[in-house]
Simulated scan of single mutants.
Amino acid sequence: MFIVAKVMLYVSFAILMGAFILFTVPKSKRFEIKLSKKVLLILIGLIPLFGMGELLRLTNHLGEDFGYWLTFQNIVFSFEVGKGWIFLTGISVLLFFMVLFNNVAEERFFAGLSLFLLIGMGVSVGYSSHAASLESFGILAHTLHFLAVITWSGVLLVTGFFSNGEGPVLSFYKWFTPLALACLFTVIGAGLWLMSYIVPEYVNSYMLNYGQALVIKHILLFIIVFYSLINGVWLKKKIKEGSNSLSLLKWIKAEGIILFLAFVTTAVMSQQTPPHDVAETLQMQDPSPLFTLITGLSPGENPMLTFNFSFISLIWIAVAALLIFTVFTAIKRSKGIAFVTTASILASGAIYLAIMSSLTL
């Protein structure tokens, strides 16, 4: 339940971010968006509710001895995660009335103000993050990472699933391509920054559930970058050559689906203990069942994973390369979105197996 709440929090943020960004762009450089004021208000109202998931998870974990209601009150008013949620809720109320009393879809000024308030809500997410409790600049790293992800994914999700049926045009790519690149570099930079003190033993963390979710997320990010190259370079070229842009819209949807899967892995990570010291963490919890099942390895007292590429891992790399080539070929031949998405997921699985099969203790 808590994972579902986290996923829906990310999705709500992303759709709102994408909508407000597109509403601030002149109509000549975008398309008509099928997001009514009612839907926007519902999404704004859901964010504090989904954000409460972390509070309820902590209450469920800590409340057995002291009483759940008293524990919940203490978390809300004393814990950083609770203060962040209060901040998030307060800004969401302002944003709700901003959208309620103004036509943000037509008035770019109010769309910009709404975007500013939503960014403030994103800062509250960074304030209540685990990174903020570990490092003085953790709030900055987490906020940058979070805002970059929802900006990039939000525009894609709204473009793919909430447009009026028209495909992307060249004027859209002219501003979105540099925005997407800026988001990509921010995600990578802030992600490495976060990992430096949250997961300092990156490879060793594969033995834990957190590390398994993290490596799957990174593989999905690789697939997303591959889609970005197709959507931002190759498809843009096809539009210049006069191809029907409507037929290209489904590949933006496919990228949005992979981004959603990345949200799911991020939500799973949020429910796991970050492994600052893997050996110490393994003394308190069992290794990841997925890790032991796939690798057949059993961590000892001083576990230290290393890469040793074998014949099997090379085969999985070849399979992954073949599947990625299949995805590109299928897009060139305009195959169905279900086939391309399935092949992308299988490519991700092959990359994961290539990594796991190359690990030794």
Rank of each mutant, 00 (worst) to 15 (best):
M98S: 13
L353P: 02
F291Q: 09
I15N: 08
I150R: 05
L229P: 02
Q212K: 04
S228Y: 03
S245Y: 09
T177K: 10
A279I: 05
N103T: 11
L208A: 14
Y127S: 09
S36M: 07
L346C: 07
I198A: 04
Q283K: 15
K253R: 15
M284K: 15
S12H: 09
L9I: 05
S358C: 14
M304T: 10
I150Q: 06
V11K: 08
T59S: 13
I188D: 08
M195N: 04
I15G: 06
F23Y: 15
I252P: 06
S298I: 12
K27N: 07
P287F: 01
F110P: 09
F87V: 13
L115M: 12
M356R: 09
G256M: 01
F66P: 04
P289W: 13
G256V: 00
L49C: 04
K29G: 01
T186A: 03
L249I: 02
V199E: 04
G256I: 00
K27F: 01
L323Q: 13
Q272H: 15
S334C: 00
V149I: 12
I15L: 13
L58R: 13
F50I: 12
T306M: 08
T186M: 03
M98H: 09
A330F: 13
F307E: 12
F307N: 11
G84R: 01
S247D: 13
F162C: 09
S245F: 06
S344D: 11
F325G: 05
N204H: 09
K335S: 11
T342Q: 03
R108I: 08
F87H: 12
L208E: 13
V327L: 04
N308W: 10
A5R: 05
W234P: 08
K237F: 09
S245C: 05
P48I: 12
K27D: 07
L323E: 12
F161G: 15
S36L: 08
A330K: 13
F172L: 00
G63K: 03
R333E: 14
K29H: 05
L259W: 07
G242C: 04
A213R: 02
K34A: 07
V25T: 12
N60Q: 14
S114G: 11
E280D: 13
V155R: 05
V7N: 06
A132T: 01
I230H: 07
L305T: 01
H276T: 05
F137Q: 13
T89K: 06
F185Y: 12
K253Y: 07
P48R: 13
N60S: 15
I150Y: 00
K174C: 04
F116V: 15
G82T: 10
